[in-house]
Computed example of a mutant assay.
Amino acid sequence: MAIEVNGVSIETTDHGYLVNHLDWNEDVARKLAEIEGITLTDKHWDVINYLRDEYINNGQNQPMERAVLKDIGKRWGTKPASKDLYLLFPLAPTKQGTKIAGLPEVMRKGGY
């Protein structure tokens, strides 16, 4: 499976995740978000950039929701509720957010 972004074909898995996270850029994120039915806001970008930073600069860490809530709260100045993240990424912030961030699919079950 592949998506077209700016005239370039980018390979994705059967579940819509990028095959190579190095193919990601903001235009790719916008296309992935569009496919997911999400219009990206600054808060979406905060979560996306956080997830990418954790994966790329922290040993391929894919944090669970509790860690995302805590760390995003530091960026936003107030700790969001789980519901706040689900309003941004309705199909699970750590899974749908990771997809839009161009990172490998999270294989663990749920997890708060």
Rank of each mutant, 00 (worst) to 15 (best):
L103K: 01
D71F: 03
A2S: 15
R52M: 00
V106F: 11
I100L: 08
D27C: 00
L69E: 04
A101R: 07
G16D: 12
K83C: 05
H15E: 12
R52P: 00
T94C: 14
K43R: 15
L40M: 04
I100G: 03
G110I: 00
G16E: 10
A29W: 10
N25Q: 06
V106R: 15
I3Q: 02
L85K: 09
D27A: 07
W45F: 08
T13W: 08
M1S: 12
V47M: 04
L91Q: 10
I38W: 09
Q62H: 06
I38E: 04
L32I: 04
G97D: 08
T13V: 09
L40D: 03
I10Y: 00
G111W: 13
E65D: 02
V106T: 13
M1K: 14
I10H: 00
E54I: 01
K74A: 13
Y50W: 03
L85P: 07
T39D: 14
I38S: 11
E36D: 14
L32C: 08
K74C: 04
Q96V: 06
I72Q: 10
G111T: 07
K99D: 06
T12L: 14
T41P: 10
V19L: 15
N58D: 01
H44P: 05
S9F: 09
Y112I: 09
R75L: 15
I72N: 10
V68E: 01
N6V: 05
L91M: 08
H15P: 02
E36R: 13
Y55E: 10
Q96K: 10
K43V: 11
T94N: 14
N25C: 03
H15V: 07
I3R: 04
T41W: 08
Y86R: 13
N58A: 02
G110S: 01
T13M: 11
P93Q: 06
S82T: 05
E4T: 08
R66T: 02
V68D: 02
D71P: 06
E65G: 10
L40Q: 07
Y112R: 15
N49E: 00
N61A: 12
L69F: 08
L87H: 15
M64N: 01
L85Y: 04
R30A: 03
N58I: 04
G77K: 10
D23A: 12
V8F: 06
V19E: 14
G77W: 10
R108H: 04
Y55T: 08
V47L: 14
P93V: 07
P80G: 12
L22H: 02
G102V: 00
V8Q: 12
G7H: 06
H21D: 03
P80T: 05
T12F: 06
D23Q: 09
L22A: 00
A29H: 10
P90A: 08
D46L: 10
G102K: 06
G97Q: 04
I10G: 00
H15A: 11
L69N: 05
D23C: 07
D14V: 11
A33F: 02
Y86T: 02
Y17R: 08
G97N: 08
Y55M: 11
M1A: 11
P90C: 12
L51E: 03
L87P: 03
A29E: 04
D42N: 00
I72W: 07
E54D: 00
L103W: 03
I38A: 11
A67W: 05
W76I: 00
T13C: 03
L85T: 03
G102L: 03
D23I: 07
M107T: 14
K109A: 13
K79Q: 14
G97R: 07
A67P: 01
Y112T: 11
K70I: 06
N20R: 15
W76C: 00
